[in-house]
Design a protein around this nucleic acid. Sequence first.
DNA 1: CGCCAGGACGCCC
DNA 2: GGGCGTCATGGC
Length: 270
Amino acid sequence: MDYKISGNDIIVHEADLDLDETLDCGQAFRWKKVSSDYECTYTGSFFNDRLTVSQTGRGDFIFHDTTEEELLKKWVDYFDFNTDYTELKKMFSEDETLSKACEYAGGIRLLRQNSWECLISFIISQNNNIPRIKGIIDRLCEKYNEDFPSPEQLSGEDPDSLSYLRSGFRAKYICDAVSKVNSGDIDLKAVSAMPIDEARAALKRIKGVGPKVAECVLLFGMYRIEAFPVDVWIKRVLAEYYPGGFPEYISGYAGIAQQYLFHYIRNLSE
DNA sequence: CGCCAGGACGCCC
DNA sequence: GGGCGTCATGGC
């Protein structure tokens, strides 16, 4: 990634980033596409930080109203700019299916998100569709000045008081997560450093967190890129293209490969 | 109207 | 330990 400052904006060039593919592929739910003069512009939040960012062409971006300090401290990390995706995709391309997936959606990056926000977001995501997931998270953040509420801020809630979210049966799961994190029963920072099987087991002690949600929290909220969420789409990919199993040399980066495959297979069926 | 959504739980055998 | 109905809500 290279960048230059332009007034209150920062012009960034990064070949391996496409905003539509990265911000609207189901890994984060708080980005909104807003109309603009550019190719596309998104405004959104990462935990308690906001950003408006435009794509002006292939690999060209404007980070609006931000400082060099903020860019380097927050957004470089969030957009995973220190990881060389060209190199990753080169490795993936030795596999025929992954090669096609990378060709189709090569601008996907794995966002380094906040573990707590991811935990709640993916609890909400179960048996739900993306527009409605976004709506529920919108209503939650709206109540806290567009910040994502901390476990402490949610400590007094119960499923009834959360009814304004219209999250259905998931409200009681949110409350269990709040309770276990506030009591110290679950320490997300400690979980993120655990051996992965131990981390999976710890997360699954929260009600409403099963294999899929745990895997998403590990991948999207803790940057455990070996985590591999399996949903109906990925099941389809595995059955159709990898009957003998997923290539071993990918396993350490399986989560990033999963992102490319997920996007690819969903497009094929449309 | 019925079907489905980036699932998990509880209960059944 | 695998199979299956159920769980709220709303987009389509």
